[in-house]
Design a protein around this nucleic acid. Structure first.
Lengths: 367, 367
DNA sequence: GAAGGCAGAGTAAACGTTAACCTTGTCTTG
DNA sequence: CAAGACAAGGTTAACGTTTACTCTGCCTTC
């Protein structure tokens, strides 16, 4: 019935993108007129600034509440130089790692009055540059960088332009040039491996992330350290490189199973890859954890819902998101940071995908 | 090394939120000065409007490219009345249904030059009102409503204020008052049930969504219709109400298993619940699909990665997001819509969680 | 009782664009 | 060759706030 807002009855057929005439909104000027004061006074009231008498303040306050006046964002933004927007850039909306962080960020921003702009680069450099160009028009007060690879250009440009930003996780090189939030990845890798060792495993396969990323290498280093501690030689055949995608989990698991002497446990670089491991094992009719133990990394939401629930190294994603958002807010406010680089603790979450190794050899059974 | 941007060396300790002095950006005025023309001309060049000679245009163009001038977003926004922002409201960042739609939306917006603001209400009315108030400051050009429940106030207010919006999915009542994107839910329910019937199942449990939602009832109606077509009486004991959460899947599956005459197949209202079904079955050592068939609804990304991969009714989520975004863009441009309500087709995605019913009764084995 | 202080309120100039409307000059056309 | 058309470019007034500064009384205070 009120569809008129959506159908402009201009018989022009398609028409050249005629702007929809939004009903003229109430402005401060109008409020001022009604209250019989100047806009300055109204502005003072709206921004809770001193310089207005109690009675006048109350009167204007009431007037505003009665009307449906809302401050115009653009004008405010233009005048004050702050947009109230924060950009979050990531590669791809995926639902695991990224989502956990986004949730944390959202939580903080919501209370602070900032709004969150989400942008996915899709790993495309052109898209990325496009975004960068757009970010520089001062439409964002700050940026959260959730790019797991070192996009040199971006950080440098932001730095250069004086746009506050915080990088989250998986930085290539821990730098002091800008604030970073991460977690104790190396320790995570160590803990995961140690746990498997404690269950009696001796041949442990690992499916890492891309090894040009520091964080992938950190997991691997932790793994190595744990093995060495246990006096076990590292078998290069058990180390597979993936790229944190489910597909890698499948492929590399198959490679591991096809080894003459396959492992009895697999340490997947992240939960997405672990899911791939599950799938490959399911196809080969290898039971978890009876015939193969699997441990993941991240502890994304669905990890607990896999069957069997995945034992994994938890990164406190939401917490990381929260911290990052808080740091950024402080940066925007012009306050200084106590520390530029924060690492939150990873922890072992024991569920049901790991058990003691089975006795016999794992052949290539095919039901 | 350029950390100075982050540490203002004002010895004031904490200090009262001192604004960080961003380096003064280049403005159009400066470009105009350098080019020896008026700002109008520069503006014309920037916006590709006629009224500028070829040579002048080229000269200004070059000048702009060489400098690192970027248009000021706020000023533009203020003057033109368009912010280039689109709001997406949802209840909770979850990663299944919502994420699929967001991906579709992102895809379209990215190309159009709009940026996506994501806001989660967390099912909290106060937060919702807060958002609503903020949206009215004309900081968004349009809104995508991803609220699976009928938040009467929101749609009405938006309508009233003339803010373009499109509602996605799960509307309580298909209305013509505003544009809606949905999918053929009823048919999906019918297809799912029919498929299970075709495999030989006769007792099929269903775990619905909240029955006050039309879309939950639609699934159920489809289920009923299929059973009736097959001449099978609907057993009320096999109908469980959930609320689309994983936990409901667990609980209701247990209830179904505890029935004196349990079903041989379970139709979960969405994939999250199906995941819960998986988990409950795993705990009870009931194998899928040998001892119990499971079918889901939605086809979210992880459905294919469950073990066994979940057979489900696919809602074209990305497509829905794309459509919604496109409709909204058209609305914003002031064009009229051909149709206000679009329903995209659901489809059956056969994977490995369904099979013929097993012969004997399903007892409460506890290996 | 004059000087100073201060609270309450107003003036007016930004903030950086855009767009409606001019001005100027050149070119066409009858 | 005068009238008009048209292209290239400029003037100027918004857009809706905020804020530095000014003004006006009235109240202290010596």
């Amino acid at each position: 019935m009120i569809s008129l807002s959506y159908r402009l009855p201009t018989g022009t057929g398609e028409g050249p993108t005629l702007e929809p005439k939004r009903p003229k909104r109430l402005t401060m000027v109008e409020i001022a007129r009604r209250a019989g004061v100047s806009t300055t006074t109204v502005s003072k009231v709206l921004n809770q600034r001193p310089g207005v008498g109690e009675k006048t303040r109350a009167r204007i306050q009431r007037l505003i509440e009665q009307s449906d006046y809302v401050q115009n964002h653009a004008a405010r933004h233009l005048r004050r130089g702050r947009s109230g927007l924060i950009d979050l850039v990531l590669m791809r909306l995926e639902g695991g790692y990224d989502l956990g962080i986004m949730q944390g960020v959202q939580e903080v921003l919501e209370q602070s009055g900032y709004r969150l702009v989400v942008f996915a680069t899709n790993e495309d450099e052109a898209t990325e540059r496009l975004w960068l160009r757009r970010i520089l028009d001062q439409s964002s007060d700050g940026v959260l960088l959730l790019l797991p690879y070192e996009r040199v250009g971006i950080a440098d440009t932001l730095l250069e332009q004086g746009i506050p930003f915080v990088a989250i996780g998986d930085r290539n090189e821990p730098t002091t040039a800008f604030p970073t939030i991460g977690s104790t990845i190396w320790l995570g890798g160590y803990t995961a491996t140690e746990y498997l060792l404690s269950l009696g495993h001796r041949r442990i396969g690992i499916i890492t992330g891309p090894l040009h990323l520091t964080t992938s290498r950190a997991r691997l280093a932790g793994y190595r350290e744990a093995l060495e501690q246990a006096g076990i030689a590292v078998d290069p055949a058990l180390i597979c490189e993936g790229s944190y995608l489910l597909g890698d989990g499948i492929r590399q698991t198959e490679a591991l199973l096809d080894l003459p002497d396959p492992p009895t446990a697999i340490f997947a670089g992240n939960d997405a890859q672990a899911t791939g491991v599950y799938q490959a094992l399911y196809r080969r009719h290898v039971r978890i954890p009876e015939e193969m133990s699997v441990i993941g990394f991240d502890d994304v939401t669905y990890s607990a819902h896999l069957a069997p629930p995945l034992t994994t190294i938890r990164q406190p994603l939401e917490e990381m998101g929260r911290m990052a958002a808080e740091m950024l807010l402080r940066l925007i406010a012009g306050q200084s940071l106590e520390t530029h680089h924060v690492e939150l603790a990873t922890s072992l979450v024991i569920r049901e995908s790991c058990g003691p190794p089975r006795q016999g050899r794992l052949g290539r059974e095919k039901s």
